[in-house]
């Protein structure tokens, strides 16, 4: 063994300890200085407000920076805030702190970027958005409700703690139905079902079933379970005349859970307007 060499290595190894201490101090000093000021948030919001269109989405990265909502305000409508996906948007404005990226912008090329102190606003273009012919959420108040139901959509929390804007449907021993009149057809009925998160102790129970009827005919459905994947269901909606669409929701047990439904009718991809 090279003993002097060994001793030198030991001294260097010990030298790591004060180096760690110093690094910790510098980092601890830097961390609070990376927090954007309210002026920086406001400047970013002003810039987005000047450019944002009605079909554009605003997201914050990292997602925990919820204080940004104070400045972004109406730039993030509730429906956008509780979106299931980005298929209804043209562009995304990403408000980024310290270089963070939002999952919605992963893999997308940056169209433009502007800095406001410690905040960067980046713009991305999404794939061509879906043309929505009818949004059931906007017509919930007019829907005919059987065995309960609510008149306005709410934000419900999914099992991964994301807020989702849905039509709340109470789970009961009897089937609960929502019926919408004069729904345009000739497209695709697309939607999401969601069993809302309650608490670990209550996230039990069998599946929740959704059945969809068009003018009285059963056209399809979906089944949802606790912690199940959040995937859209799609049903073809043939015909040219407006139709009556009826959603039937039923569950066999643990009726204390919450169920939410988000759906629209959209033009088939590639179909002529």
């Amino acid at each position: 063994m090279d003993r002097p060499g060994f001793r030198v290595r030991m001294v260097w190894l010990w030298g790591l300890v004060p180096a760690i201490a110093l690094a910790e101090m510098v980092m601890q000093w830097r961390i609070p200085r990376q927090e954007p000021s309210s002026d920086e948030w406001k400047a970013a919001a002003r810039a987005i407000g000047a450019e944002k269109g009605v079909n554009d989405l605003v997201v914050t990265a990292p997602a925990w920076a919820t204080q940004g909502r104070m400045s972004l305000g109406a730039l993030v409508p509730v429906a956008d805030f509780g979106r299931f996906d980005t298929t209804r948007y043209d562009r995304v404005f990403e408000v980024s702190l310290n270089g963070a990226r939002a999952p919605e912008t992963e893999g997308l090329p940056v169209e433009s970027e502007e800095s406001f102190g410690r905040i960067a606003v980046r713009r991305y273009r999404l794939s061509p958005r879906a043309t929505v012919l009818y949004d059931f959420m906007q017509h919930l108040g007019e829907a005919h409700r059987e065995n309960g139901g609510y008149t306005n959509p709410v934000l419900m929390i999914d099992h991964w703690f994301n807020p989702r804007f849905v039509m709340p449907v109470p789970l009961k021993r009897r089937t609960v139905a929502l019926t919408f009149e004069n729904v345009p057809t000739g497209g695709v009925l697309r939607g999401y079902g969601l069993i809302g998160y309650r608490s670990g102790r209550f996230n039990k129970g069998g599946p929740v079933s959704l059945r969809v009827f068009v003018d009285g005919a059963h056209v399809g459905g979906a089944s949802f379970r606790n912690f199940g994947p959040l995937e859209p269901f799609e049903l073809a909606l043939p015909g040219r005349q407006p139709a009556t669409v009826r959603f039937e929701v039923s569950a066999v047990d643990n009726l204390s859970r919450e169920f939410g439904l988000a759906a629209d009718v959209r033009r088939k991809p590639g179909a002529a307007p």
């Binding site: 609510y150 008149t151 306005n152 709410v154 709340p168 608490s199 209550f202 204390s256 919450e258």
Partner: peptide, 10 residues
């Protein structure tokens, strides 16, 4: 505005 009662157990 009337709000749906969505609160539960926690």
């Amino acid at each position: 505005r009337p709000r749906p009662e969505m609160r539960g157990d926690e």
